[in-house]
Design a protein around this nucleic acid. Structure first.
Lengths: 132, 132
DNA sequence: CACTTTTTTAGAATCATTATAAACTAGTTA
DNA sequence: TAACTAGTTTATAATGATTCTAAAAAAGTG
């Protein structure tokens, strides 16, 4: 399976559960947004096997730490993740409560003029809220 | 007291609790960021009286709805609010877990080129994460 | 004052997330 | 293969922010 090496190279053992989760998350053309609960449902449907909720949490956090997933900064009762880890931004449709990708090229250059002593910029994320 | 009219005009009865919370939130030169728990502590210290946690939640949400407070989109276990309701952005210091204001003029114009059918842009918020 | 509506309150309930600790698995070495 | 170690999974319990509830208190009105 093609994710075995990827996991090993990250210092993560390629367990059955992790490989299944890789398959659901990354074995697709399109990137997507998800919450932990949505992911759990998707796993159940696609693999016909149940992975413990704790494992889903552990794995998603491990993948995030390794840079294979990104958390989306948004205030919601559940945390949203993104399989698109390139630099990009988001629309948030307040009515539908849905996220839509916003490519860097759709926003134009953002130039942060203020500097904070001794700190480096790690990321710049734009959230555009949409209403009717 | 100077907040009585403000509250009445918003359709909120000027109760003792709301006036005290107004005093803590708005009777100051500087705007600031807070979580509900931080606000509760601040109220206790500044007013020497205890307001029920439920009331603090209710009031903060009521004020947010009226536009007197803004929620800051950030993934944290607690929700952050801002008494600065002008258009502006934030640094988030990942190590210190602290928010720092970033004025519009420090970011430059942001031009969202992509349009979503039938939706209007309500707000554009930039979160700049800082590391060492 | 009498009445209605809104607000406050303590405590319970909810729900996402994290912790626990026992069972299991992968990788390694003999 | 067996034995060993470190890492992983799991069900379940614990945590903690937030919301709900329903009764008491306060505000507004005539």
């Amino acid at each position: 399976m093609k994710y075995i090496e990827k996991l090993r190279n990250s210092g993560l053992r390629p367990t059955k559960q992790r490989l299944q989760i890789c398959d659901v998350l990354f074995n697709t053309d399109k990137t997507f947004h998800f919450t932990i609960n949505e992911l759990e449902q998707k796993i159940k449907k696609q693999t016909n096997s149940k992975i413990s909720l704790a494992t889903v949490y552990n794995t998603v956090h491990a993948f995030e730490k390794k840079g294979y997933l990104k958390q989306i900064p948004i205030n919601s009762s559940e945390t949203y993740f993104d399989t698109n880890v390139t630099d990009h931004h988001h629309f948030y449709d307040l009515k539908e409560e849905k996220l839509i990708d916003l490519e860097n090229s759709d926003v134009g250059p953002i130039n942060i003029l203020k500097k904070i002593n001794g700190k480096k910029i790690k990321s710049v994320e734009v959230l555009v809220k949409l209403e009717e």
